[in-house]
């Protein structure tokens, strides 16, 4: 089982590496969204400092949603997904591998680049670090819950908008906790409880959603 898990991750990472621009696009989208916010709300440093964690997290949510359509779509088109369903290996493990790979190519880059964005918003070092940590612990939920939406809307027309509609409301607890962590640190409080809750949500999503994703894939591909 571990072998198939690692094989799926290796395959998806290699595919992502071969099509680097797809990964880069998501990351660029994330940076662009964060960048246009000051242009919309004004460049008052105090205001920007206050809204920075929320803005970064909202942008992370949107970037995750945008990248989701790709998760199963190309495998579905070339028939790989069907083979995965037919394979003797448990589908939940294959799905787990795919989602982890998705997180590695979207969640991790977003987390890394967020340090740079935090500097642009001039938030202090501890808050920036907490923001980064909250993204690292929270983005797995985005990939796992998002994969449920992606598998349910597989090969539907207008799937992109539909995924956002299904998934964004479910993301809200993560958004609240993630942005809350950095805001708590910025106002001199302890951010650890937020991070622990985020980690708990991540683990919960990791345990429960692969079953839902596997079921949804079987429903979508009859």
């Amino acid at each position: 089982m571990l072998r198939i898990f690692l094989a799926v991750i290796r395959r998806d990472l290699m595919l992502a590496f071969r099509q680097r621009m797809d990964v880069m696009n998501t990351l660029l989208f994330f940076v662009v969204v964060v960048t246009i916010v000051p242009l919309g709300v004004g460049a008052d440093p105090n205001l920007l400092r206050a809204i920075a964690p929320g803005v970064v997290w909202v942008a992370a949510l949107l970037a995750a949603v945008l990248s989701l359509q790709r998760l199963f779509a190309s495998d579905n088109q070339d028939g790989t997904l069907e083979q995965m369903l037919l394979a003797g290996e448990p589908l939940t493990v294959i799905v787990l591998g795919k989602v982890v790979a998705h997180w590695l190519v979207t969640g991790i880059p977003v987390t890394v680049i967020s340090i740079l964005l935090a500097l642009m918003f001039d938030i202090d070092r501890d808050a920036a670090l907490t923001l980064c940590l909250s993204l690292a612990t929270g983005t797995p939920v985005l990939s796992f819950l998002g994969a449920v939406g992606a598998s349910l809307t597989l090969s539907l027309r207008g799937a992109g908008v539909l995924i956002s509609l299904l998934v964004l409301p479910l993301y809200i607890p993560v958004l609240i906790l993630g942005a809350g962590a950095a805001e708590a640190v910025a106002s001199g409080l302890d951010g650890t409880p937020y991070l622990l809750l985020l980690a708990a949500l991540s683990l919960l999503a990791m345990v429960l959603t692969p079953w839902a994703i596997a079921a949804a894939l079987r429903i979508s591909i009859e």
Binding site: L145, V148, L152, L170, A215, I219
Partner: peptide, 12 residues
């Protein structure tokens, strides 16, 4: 598909 969505949502 809606059943799966409702079950995921009910956690909320």
């Amino acid at each position: 598909a809606c059943a799966v969505l409702a079950l995921v949502g009910v956690v909320n």
